[in-house]
Nucleic acid binder design. Structure first.
Lengths: 197, 197
DNA sequence: ATCGTATTTGAGTGTTCATTCAAGTTAAAC
DNA sequence: GTTTAACTTGAATGAACACTCAAATACGAT
């Protein structure tokens, strides 16, 4: 077994996430990737296969980290409903934090990619479905804990929440001030809390 | 004054809207534009200046038509609140209608474009602000008509509605069935109607 | 120290990109 | 019918694109 790769796959993917998240798939060139990962084209293609496959790996890593963040928020609250409300409010602070991009990378990809890049678009869709499933599970837990009425549909609530977050984060990409964004997130959080019986 | 252009500017722009709306800015080449507008590169550049300026003109036309659609919906209802609710429900049918793309072209552009294409991104932002202003005016009218409580803030309601529509139409881009989308739009419409005192 | 092999390198591949422009074409004005 | 200026054409431009590969390199095993 001679030689291990010099690059750190995890670190490289993190750089790729940052780059693609910021610029999108089509506006990012392999030249950009070379700079960001400090790798030469041959190494990049040996390690990741193609620009599209690297992008899909980056999507995976992004989603995994996003899901972990949500999980952390939820774990820090006894009530699922409060956890979700707090998660929304934390997204309201998106203007203050330093992030590669305010909009969600999955949504950016879903909207940017077409049938020509079907593989990556399906990947984005699948990862968004994963997120939505977590929201649904959360509302189911809230229902079992007696937090929300049994007449409510966890599936519909989860769907609605995902759509709201997609909207919130797309809105965050607009040229609006931090207060407006915080108010918007707060209004959404209040809607969640009002589900409480 | 010799010779008028053979092409019809309006028609050409409509074709451009369809093309860019579907594929986005970066994934659309001038070759694509040549085919869609049935114009040769020289004519395209004489008429529109550059790919970026053509895109901005297309954005303008898209927004103008979108605003007109909203206006038509509102005119067909005596109540502003009902008009907005119906507008949302009509967006819920996005899966059934044949459209170039389910997501909003302004949002797609806002998310796709970066600082490199600042002019077009600002354009998208400005046009979204125009839409939001119309929503705000609608809630103000509803308030003056006594439909919603005076404690509500039309600015916040307008912002929220825009974010919801951004989310709804981004969600519509996902691989979900028509029923799910109609339910989502309906849930949002109900939220609007529940503002009624 | 030497060997064997996986990794790295960077010049090079052919293609496609947005854009230009000189030459050709056309219709209005007289 | 001639003039004239705007429009149209399409080959040509250089740059940027994703990707390849033969050669150089460096590490683990012996």
């Amino acid at each position: 077994m001679p030689r291990q790769p010099l690059y750190d796959r995890q670190r490289a993917l993190d750089q790729a996430v940052q780059l693609f998240w910021q610029q999108g798939f089509h506006a990012t060139s392999i030249k950009d990737v070379e700079r960001a990962l400090d790798m030469r084209p041959g190494s990049i293609y040996a390690a990741f296969g193609s620009k599209s496959r690297l992008f899909q790996d980056a999507l995976d890593r992004y989603a995994q980290q996003g899901l972990a963040e949500l999980e952390a928020q939820l774990q820090s609250h006894a009530s699922p409903l409060s956890g979700l409300a707090d998660y929304l409010r934390s997204l309201g602070g998106l203007r203050d934090r330093v992030v590669p991009c305010r909009a969600c990378m999955l949504v950016k990809s879903l909207l940017e990619l077409g049938e020509r890049d079907a593989a990556a678009q399906n990947q984005a869709d699948r990862l968004l479905a994963l997120m939505e499933a977590r929201f649904v599970a959360c509302f189911e837990a809230a229902q079992e804990a007696g937090e929300i009425a049994t007449t409510q549909s966890p599936v519909r609530l989860g769907r609605r929440l995902q759509a709201e977050i997609m909207g919130l984060r797309a809105y965050a990409q607009r040229d609006v001030d931090a207060t407006a964004l915080r108010q918007l997130a707060d209004d959404m959080a209040v809607s969640i809390e009002q589900l409480r019986v």
